[in-house]
């Protein structure tokens, strides 16, 4: 640890070859400073999901290193890996809530990493955690929905529950994998605004893959772009222009106003 100067995330020569020989990432290197909102751009299949999953080790990268707040995470195993994951919340494109459980239980599951094993297996949490979960739900604008079943909620609401689950984790870093890609365009800002507020108000570092250019320019403080598993561009949203767009997405691509590419 080098104190405040350490990058929140430092990725060095990261490579990932899936069993079966498919290469998803090739020598990707970049840094994310504490408090940044980094958007990851790229076509489907460019390696965005793989990159995010290598950072919290849902996937094991085959080459290179990842440091989080100065700590190398690429070699962690067992309980050390779980302690690392506690500090990193993840938001998924498909929400990935446990559908048949209540909204409250879903939010509480964000606290599993710091809960005692036996009570947690009985789905019993301390009163303080329950209050924290209710507060998290209020914060994402879903007060009073704690006892609904998760699958009774609309897509936008489900993703806000996922944000509350991330909040519950009290993380230092948020990974968001296409958090609004399966939502109605009109609802996208409702979710993005909550992720933004975690970034602005709590000072959390955010890595968010996005493919909607409007959202990128509005929320991100910095961008990186992947193409065929390689980092092809990085810079600030203000430097992102038509030419860069074509470089990343190919000559045939046209920026669309509210959907994809």
């Amino acid at each position: 640890m080098t104190g405040g100067t350490a990058a929140a995330v430092e990725v060095r020569d990261l490579g990932m070859v899936y069993p079966g020989g498919i290469r998803a990432l090739e020598s990707v290197s970049f840094e994310v400073k504490e408090g940044e909102f980094l958007a990851v751009l790229g076509l489907s299949g460019s390696g965005k999901s793989t990159l995010l999953r290598c950072i919290n080790r849902l996937l094991d990268p085959t080459e290179g290193t990842v440091h989080i707040f100065g700590e190398e995470v690429t070699a962690l195993r067992g309980s050390a890996l779980r302690r690392l994951r506690c500090r990193i919340a993840m938001i998924f494109q498909q929400f990935n809530l446990v559908k048949r459980q209540t909204v409250l239980t879903n939010v509480l599951s964000g606290a599993l990493g710091r809960s005692r094993l036996l009570p947690s297996l009985m789905v019993s949490f301390p009163q303080a955690e329950r209050e924290r979960a209710v507060a998290a739900l209020e914060r994402v604008g879903l007060p009073g929905r704690a006892d609904s079943r998760a699958d009774a909620l609309s897509g936008g609401q489900q993703q806000r529950v996922a944000v509350a689950r991330a909040l519950m984790q009290e993380p230092q870093l948020i990974l968001a994998d296409e958090p609004v890609a399966s939502l109605d365009p009109a609802l996208r800002h409702s979710v993005m605004r909550h992720i933004e507020s975690l970034n602005r108000e709590e000072g959390l570092t955010v890595l968010c893959s996005l493919h909607d250019i409007d959202l990128v320019t509005r929320y991100a403080t910095r961008l990186i772009a992947l193409r065929d598993g390689q980092l092809v561009w990085q810079g600030s949203p203000s430097n992102f222009d038509q030419k860069t767009f074509k470089e990343i997405y190919g000559q045939d691509a046209e920026p669309a106003s509210n959907s994809g590419y």
Binding site: N56, L58, S79, R82, R83, L84, R85, C86, R87, I88, A89, M90, F92, Q94, F95, N96, L97, V98, K99, S109, G110, A111, L112, G113, R114, S115, L117, S120, L121, A162, R165, Q169, L175
Partner: peptide, 15 residues
């Protein structure tokens, strides 16, 4: 998906 999400919170195998 839900398994990945729970794993990502730092939960143990049994959890």
């Amino acid at each position: 998906g839900p398994m990945d999400a729970i794993m990502a919170t730092g939960a143990s195998t049994l959890q």
